[in-house]
Amino acid sequence: MDKKEKVLEIIKRLDKRYPNVKTALNFNSALDLVVATILSAQTTDINVNKVTENLFKKYQTADDYANVSLTELENDIKSINFYKNKAKYIKNLAKKLIEEFNGQVPKTMNELVTLPGVGRKTANIVLWNVFGINEGIAVDTHVKRISKLLGLTENTDPDKIEQDLMEITPRKYWGKLSHLLIMLGREICKAKAPNHKICPLSDICPSSTT
C-alpha cells in the first residue's frame, strides 16, 4: 500500500484501540491548555496535571497570570522542569493576550504562534482539543519517532515531518493522528522497549520484529 493508504489503515486500527482519544493534559479552558502545554515541555503530562490541579483554581484568566508576581508564579510551578523560564513565558503570554486579544486565546494558527512559548505543536494541540480545528499535526517526540518507524517520513525536523504527514493524511484526521501516535508511543511503541507482539501495527511497520 502507498503512504496515503497506509496512514488511513493506521488511523483505523489505532482508533479502534484508542477511541475518543484526546490530550492527556487536564484543562478547563483554552488558556488552561496553553499553559499546561507550555509546562509540559521536558516533563511528563502526569507531573503537569499534578501542578495544574491547584494552579488552575488559582489562575483562571489572563489577568490572574499577568498580575501575580513572577516569584509567586515560579513558586506555584517549581516542581516542573525549567520552571523559571516557563513562568516568564506564561507571564509574557498573559500580557500579550490582554494587550492584543482582549484576554482571550485566539483561534488561528497565525495568531497563536505569536504568543510567547507557543510554537506550532502547542498551537495544533490547542486548536484541535479546544476548538475542534484541524490546522496541522502536532509533532512531539512520540509522533516524530513513530512516524519515521512506520515509514511515513524520512525527515527529522518537526516542521518537515508535519508537512509530510499533512500531505498524506486527510485533513479531518490531522488532530486525531497526532494523539493516536502519542498513545501508541506511551503504551506500546516505547523508545527503549517497543512491544511488537501486541502492537496493532506490527504487520505494516517496517521496524517490527514479529
Rank of each mutant, 00 (worst) to 15 (best):
I168C: 02
T23A: 00
V7S: 01
S207H: 06
K58L: 07
K176F: 04
L112R: 13
A41C: 07
E72P: 05
D2G: 02
L201D: 06
R120E: 10
G185H: 09
E154P: 04
L115Q: 12
A191N: 09
T169D: 06
M183G: 00
T169F: 06
V139N: 01
D63R: 15
T114R: 14
T156Q: 13
V51G: 00
L97A: 03
K148G: 11
N75I: 01
K160A: 13
A138C: 08
T108C: 05
P106T: 04
N47I: 04
V35Y: 14
I137T: 06
W128V: 15
A191I: 15
L184R: 11
N102H: 14
K86D: 03
R13S: 10
C189W: 05
L127F: 11
S178N: 07
Q104N: 15
L14S: 00
A36T: 09
P206T: 06
K95I: 13
F131M: 10
L177A: 05
R145T: 07
V35P: 09
T23H: 02
L31D: 07
I198L: 04
F56D: 03
K84N: 07
D203Y: 09
H196K: 08
S208A: 11
I188Q: 00
K58D: 01
D15P: 06
K3W: 09
N54V: 06
N49K: 10
P116D: 00
